[in-house]
Amino acid sequence: MLNIADTLHRWCREARPFALATVVDVTGSAPLPVGTSVAVDEDGNAVGSISGGCVEGAVYELCRQVLRDGGASQRARFGYLDDDAFAVGLTCGGELDVLVQRIDPTARPYLAVALSDVVHGRPTAVAQIADGPEELLGRMLYVDANGDTRHDTLSGTVRRELSARARALLRSGRTARAEVGGDAETCPERLSALVHVHASRPRMLIFGAVDFAAALSRAGRFLGYRVTVCDARPVFATGARFPHADEVVVDWPHRYLERADVDARTVVCVLTHDAKFDVPLLRLALELPVGYVGAMGSRRTHEERLRLLREAGVTEERLGRLRSPIGLDLGARTPEETAVSITAEIVAHANGGAGLPLSQGTGPIHRPSVRERPVPVSR
């Protein structure tokens, strides 16, 4: 859907109904990825492509039919036909599952907002139910950059689970399927939603070109972060030492952070444990709207660092944001184990987790979020 956001945004602003055909699953080889869409308005105007041409005609006719009938959403499957490779099907040999639904922008006012976010480059996630009870097919849920949610009519348990999955995918910047429900006690309806995500990868800023930074940069990249390693010492800050980092910067840490592009998803990891770097860097980092600030060092180092930061004018409220010593207590010793400890704390902090063994807890594993705003849809 987001591949044609410009046109869909215009159609929504014009309150123009349209049919939306979206690839919700791919088997084998296919020319375009899951999440790609075609849309057709009531005048027969079409935008987008889902197969590079080989099934466009059939999808176009399905869209026209859905617009004429004004009925329920439909699922269709297109695949390679052995007896006629040039008939309606995928000559590349793969198979596509396509969801076709009618969109009335006046009944989904949040969709224009979501598409506006995409057009203007703001992080956005739109979840679209692709499998489940027929009456729920095509229903949507929108998550904005702040994690606030608007949605079609969905039950509370489905809404909470789907919101949590959408937020997690938005943080990682990935469009993917999300499975929801199937639990007789909490959410008996088994649903599968395609979560369309528009977001640059969140940033992980690692300060200090040390062995721990090499392991952390690898773990951060695995989690989907765009990783920067920064150090003022050119002999240590080299691409050869940090092959998993997206960029390696030679500069004073605080000076680099002053010009860095950060947001609420950004994590700052200070591994230098050297006061001449740490104090000016942390003083700045704790004032910025980043999601996580952690600093490496012993408890004695941490206490001395706090003293110096207080002398530098950092308030207790700001100091309360500092995660130091950095990481969860996993008994880590090696750089690789320490990287797991640090990233575990980052994940727990981002998701509101306690960082305790699940075996020691009670109640649902996935806790509901309080930031949800339902938007009813006329049926």
Rank of each mutant, 00 (worst) to 15 (best):
Val314Glu: 15
Val113Ile: 05
Thr266Asp: 15
Ile326Phe: 03
Gly361Asp: 06
Pro368Val: 03
Ala178Ile: 02
Arg226Trp: 15
Val40Asn: 03
Gly52Cys: 14
Ala168His: 11
Gln65Trp: 14
Pro33Gly: 14
Pro325Cys: 10
Ala339His: 01
Ile342Arg: 02
Leu194Phe: 15
Glu311Trp: 09
Cys54Thr: 00
Ala275Cys: 06
Gly352Glu: 07
Phe207Val: 01
Gly327Trp: 02
Arg174Tyr: 00
Glu287Gln: 06
Leu162Asn: 01
Arg122Val: 11
Arg323Trp: 06
Glu337Ala: 01
Gly331Asn: 05
Arg16Pro: 09
Ile342Asn: 06
Gly353Leu: 02
Val377Leu: 13
Gln74Ser: 12
Leu282Ser: 00
Arg64Leu: 08
Phe86Glu: 15
Val195Arg: 06
Ala76His: 15
Val66Leu: 11
Glu304Asp: 12
Glu372Met: 10
Pro368Glu: 05
Arg333Thr: 11
Gly181Ile: 07
Leu284Lys: 13
Val210Glu: 15
Thr22Ser: 09
Leu223Arg: 11
Ile365Pro: 04
Phe277Tyr: 15
Glu311Cys: 12
Gly48Gln: 08
Gly48Thr: 01
Tyr110Thr: 12
Arg221Leu: 07
Pro253Arg: 06
Asp329Thr: 04
Asp84Gly: 14
Arg75Ser: 10
Cys230Ile: 08
Thr334Trp: 08
Thr153Tyr: 03
Arg318Glu: 13
Gly132Trp: 00
